[in-house]
Design a protein around this nucleic acid. Structure first.
Lengths: 108, 108
DNA sequence: ATTTTGCATCGCAATATTACGATGATATAT
DNA sequence: ATATATCATCGTAATATTGCGATGCAAAAT
């Protein structure tokens, strides 16, 4: 079908999947790296740093905003994006929690 | 277009995106949680735990194998899946590295 | 008032993903 | 040999994602 049956999974798994989507495309990884290091903030600077059109970058920024991991504050005519600290830490803890589940005791 | 221009991004960003894809669907998160906790290992048990058809689960397992984060060993007629420790740690370090980039000093 | 700047959104095209029934493959059990 | 059990793959359908040109919109500058 193409639609992920999100209603049959736990809230935690759905949120985790959404947070992972923020990192599931190289352009978004690049954007998040830049913002985390504060090497760029204004949308135009991000476009300059990335090998993608302005429209495409804007779309990735929209997706990151939807997830909540970044936020934008307007400074006309510019828009300055930055990491949303709370969601960033939520993601850090979510991944940390899953990675911590694994205990290395061979099974197969 | 629909094809991610992976050739224009760094190896690191592409790999990071691939590792994130392992967690970018609730079913795969559920599978990885189960395997990390070793609550299930045989494919059939995973199918029992998940609200998806056997074919769909098998497809997610294939994707996880492609990324390398799990591996399967045949035990006819069963197949036992488990976390690939090396790739699991690679992912842990990759995410840890990105999360560590962020230093909270408000910019906008 | 018109132009320019910076960014969002629309519309389109192409590819990718998700899901499942049906079928195939393989090895054990009868 | 046939049946059963387990899992992979094929084929198909529906939806999602990726990318970009063109356009829209708001505020500043001229």
């Amino acid at each position: 079908m193409g639609l992920s049956k999100s209603e049959v999974f736990s809230e935690a798994d759905n949120r985790m999947a959404d947070l992972a989507k923020a990192f599931a495309h190289p352009a978004r990884v690049a954007i998040l790296r830049l913002l985390a290091q504060r090497k760029a903030c204004v949308c135009g600077d991000l476009v300059d740093e990335l090998p993608l059109s302005q429209a495409t970058v804007s779309q990735h920024l929209k997706e990151l905003k939807r997830i909540g991991i970044i936020q934008g504050s307007i400074d006309p005519p510019r828009v300055c994006y930055c990491i949303n600290e709370q969601v960033w830490e939520e993601a850090e803890e979510a991944f940390g929690g899953v990675f911590a589940l694994f205990s290395k005791v061979g099974c197969c």
